[in-house]
């Protein structure tokens, strides 16, 4: 029986994956086009920017030509994308060096920071949301909900400043800069990353806990939970086997979308803690009008975000047969 059904199932799944991949691809193309267009309307000519206000006109033109900036826009765009695909992200004006190694290193650093934040926040936030839902409308629920909401809405630099003051300056428990000494081991690195990760954790905690809580409450009030309870199942079995799986599906999507906010937050946190991540890189590029670096950084961030939502959707399909298997057979 199972054998007979499998091919159909595979087809349905792969059709879903293909469709989802195509959507992501469209988003990425549009994203790159937007980023490229914004790069075009940046003020002033690049040659003028690089050579300064006193350079003569011919020199500026020549530099523009050598940078390929006098070609039609579509050609420049295609060139840029093609380079990007081969790993050539252009040359930085500021560092006068290829952009790509900077991006790779910064992205690695940022991912380290994000990983620390995620590893801490995802389990605690889900736990918090579940505990709040199981104690719906009781004091512990109020504390988690209102506390979570409050932490979530505070800008990272505000929480960051307060955390630095409390743990770094007054208590002196944690280093206030994320720059660990050269050759530091994994644990030392984590030690240095905890304080920078904290503002991100606080922001994410509220979001994820809130989603987990509302998903849980909905699941607990559902008809099928009633069925499970009235079957005579133990409460623990009802929660573990029936409720959690359905309740946490929407949370997966939220975690993925929060990746986007996380990267946005990295700009601030990395600036605050002087951490050489992608956020600080983009920020410095923006300040210095280093356009190739800026565009590449933003595109990479967009790709990361799009990938995260893609993974979330695929995960949802794995857990939710309604998505995975489509409609009635």
């Amino acid at each position: 029986m199972r054998g007979r059904r499998t091919p159909a199932r595979v087809i349905v799944i792969s059709a879903f994956i293909l469709k989802r991949l195509a959507l992501s691809l469209v988003t990425l193309v549009l994203l790159s086009a937007i980023v490229f267009c914004v790069g075009q309307v940046l003020p002033g000519s690049v040659g003028r920017l690089l050579l300064g206000p006193f350079a003569d006109h011919e020199a500026v033109e020549a530099l523009n030509a050598s940078l390929g900036l006098d070609r039609p826009l579509l050609v420049q765009y295609a060139d840029w994308i093609w380079g990007f695909l081969r790993g050539d992200m252009g040359r930085s004006y500021m560092y006068e060096a290829p952009v790509q190694p900077f991006i790779v290193e910064a992205l690695g650093n940022s991912l380290k920071l994000a990983a620390v934040a995620f590893v801490i926040v995802v389990p605690t936030a889900i736990l918090g949301g579940v505990v709040a839902a199981l104690n719906h409308n009781k004091p512990i629920d109020r504390i988690i909900s209102i506390g979570g909401l409050t932490m979530t809405v505070l800008p990272e630099f505000v929480t960051g400043i307060i955390l630095i003051l409390v743990f770094g300056v007054w208590l002196k428990w944690l280093p206030i800069s994320a720059a660990w000494p050269d050759g530091a081991g994994g644990f030392t690195q984590i030690h240095y990353l905890i304080l920078p990760a904290m503002p991100l954790i606080l922001v994410l905690f509220g979001y994820i806990a809130r989603m987990a809580r509302s998903g849980m409450i909905e699941a607990l009030e559902s008809d099928w939970t009633r069925t499970a309870v009235l079957k005579g199942l133990r409460w623990r079995t009802v929660i573990w086997r029936h409720v959690l799986r359905n309740a946490l599906l929407p949370t997966i999507t939220v975690i993925a979308t929060q990746t986007g906010y996380l990267i946005g937050g990295l700009v601030v946190v990395e600036t605050l803690f002087r951490y050489q991540g992608i956020g600080l890189l983009v920020f410095t590029a923006a300040k210095g009008k280093d356009i190739p670096m800026l565009l590449a950084g933003i595109l990479v961030i967009g790709i990361v975000y799009t990938l995260a939502t893609l993974i979330a959707d695929l995960l949802c399909a794995v857990f939710d047969p309604r998505i995975r298997l489509g409609g009635r057979q």
């Binding site: 549009l30 937007i34 914004v38 986007g260 937050g265 983009v282 967009g302």
Partner: peptide, 24 residues
């Protein structure tokens, strides 16, 4: 919708950064 989705794929702060660099 596709355009908006693409815009939303860039974190708000970064989008603002990019735009303000060009707008002043």
């Amino acid at each position: 919708s596709r355009l908006m989705e693409a815009v939303m794929a860039i974190p708000g702060v970064i989008l603002a950064l990019l735009a303000i660099v060009s707008l002043g």
